[in-house]
Computed example of a mutant assay.
Amino acid sequence: MEVYRSRRLSVEEKEFSLPDGRVRNYVVVHPGSAVAMLPVIGEDCLLIRQYRYAIDGFLYEVPAGTMEPGETPVETAHREMIEETGFAAGKLSALGTILTTPGFSDEQIHLFKATDLTPSSLYPQDEDEVIEVERLSLAAAWMMVVDGTIIDAKTICMLAQCRG
């Protein structure tokens, strides 16, 4: 039974049969699939510092975004790169897919390394986002993970895969 629906997500309460035969009701959040990109320029990367209302503060993150209906992960990645950084990616290399919070959500994030970046004349940043783009070395970004400055899970996953 659907409990809630918005433009971005839905929430349902559903009965599940567990592997041992017990039946239980659970709430499942369906936010839709998303993509995240680590833009790399030589030994540097682009991260965004974005205001997140759920924590009432800023986070350092890789650019990311929700897939629109009918979009492939690659199409979404190309669109979101431009929207969040002002750069187009000449090449996207798939790094896998992660589940964000499988205890209550079916959200998947498709991960890409973005290279061959060129400035884009199209930069239609979403009107509800507050984003600053920062260029820093991959080593410095990883140190921000180590020292606890970067706490966003998708960003940590991608920096761990791409650090030199």
Rank of each mutant, 00 (worst) to 15 (best):
H78I: 08
A141L: 01
A36K: 05
S33V: 05
D20N: 14
Y53Q: 14
I151T: 15
G103F: 08
S120D: 02
E84Q: 11
T155S: 12
L38A: 09
T115G: 08
G96T: 00
W142C: 02
I55K: 13
I156T: 07
L46N: 03
E80K: 02
F58T: 01
P19W: 12
K113F: 05
M81T: 03
S120V: 00
D147R: 14
H110R: 02
L38I: 10
A139M: 10
D147G: 06
M143E: 15
V62E: 00
V146P: 01
V23A: 13
Q161V: 12
G65L: 10
T72H: 07
E80S: 02
E84Y: 00
F112L: 05
F104G: 14
P102N: 06
D106T: 13
G42M: 05
I150T: 03
T76D: 04
I98A: 07
G103K: 06
M67F: 04
C157E: 15
S33K: 13
P31T: 11
L159C: 02
I131T: 09
Y51W: 15
Q108I: 07
I131Y: 07
E75V: 06
E127M: 12
A77H: 02
R52V: 14
M158Q: 06
E107L: 12
T100S: 04
L47Q: 02
V146N: 09
S137N: 03
I98V: 15
D20H: 13
D106P: 02
D147A: 08
M144G: 05
Q161H: 10
P119Q: 06
A153V: 11
Q161E: 15
P73E: 00
T101N: 13
R52T: 15
G148L: 08
P73I: 01
Y123P: 01
V29W: 06
N25S: 12
A139W: 05
V133F: 06
W142A: 08
V145P: 00
P124N: 15
C157T: 15
I131S: 04
S33L: 10
P119Y: 05
Y51C: 06
A77N: 04
D106C: 09
L92V: 09
F104W: 11
Y53V: 13
M143R: 08
Y123W: 10
L59S: 06
D20T: 09
E129A: 12
R52N: 14
I82E: 15
Y51T: 00
N25R: 14
G148I: 07
D116E: 15
V130S: 14
E71K: 05
E75I: 04
S33R: 11
V133Q: 04
P119A: 13
P102S: 06
E75R: 08
R52C: 12
M144W: 01
P73Y: 03
E71L: 04
V28K: 09
E132M: 12
A64R: 02
G57Q: 06
L122T: 03
L122E: 11
G32H: 07
I151F: 10
E71F: 01
V40F: 05
V23N: 10
A34T: 03
H78C: 12
V40Q: 02
Y51H: 12
D106H: 09
